[in-house]
């Protein structure tokens, strides 16, 4: 494993994309970033711009008005990137999504729009579960390479 691959594992930067939902998962995500769990131990940082990110952390089911934004933010994240869906809404749509009578306002899980690499179900998942999911995301990131 070269130094570049190691660096990719050592400093994954998170961009937190909240797309609809009840804020429960966001609170837990922020708890995971706070001093009690302190992901900076492993070099994980919350970055303010998707252009800096390696890991896109999505929470919540996607409302139809939010579809272009989700796609755009995903495309702004430079390769190699990993998407971690946190919470049942982001994994499978939970209460808000249904195939048969389609919801007039809500599309469902972001998986319908962008490829998700790691799913962390839970309503809301505990911060430990989110860290566990991010660690799995890092392992997937290690396998990927930048597209030239």
């Amino acid at each position: 494993m070269g130094i570049m691959d190691k660096a990719r594992i050592y400093s994954p930067w998170l961009y937190h994309l909240h797309c609809g939902g009840c804020n429960g998962c966001d609170i837990e995500t922020l708890a995971a970033l706070a001093p009690r769990f302190d992901v900076e131990r492993f070099g994980i940082q919350l970055v303010p711009s998707p252009r800096h990110a390696d890991i896109l952390l999505t929470t919540g089911c996607v409302p139809k008005q939010f579809i272009p934004m989700v796609k755009r933010v995903y495309e702004q994240v430079p390769e190699p990137k990993v998407v971690v869906a946190v919470g049942s809404c982001a994994c499978g749509g939970s209460l808000f999504y249904d195939d048969a009578p389609e919801n007039y306002a809500i599309l469902g899980h972001p998986d319908l729009l962008i490829p998700v690499d790691v799913y962390v179900p839970g309503c809301a998942p505990k911060p430990e579960a989110i860290i566990n999911g991010v660690v799995q995301g890092i392992l997937k990131l290690a396998e990927k390479r930048a597209k030239k």
Binding site: I3, M4, A7, Y10, W13
Partner: peptide, 12 residues
Amino acid sequence: YDILKLYGKETV
């Protein structure tokens, strides 16, 4: 490591 990682990423 942060800098090295950024050098290994796509530039937009």
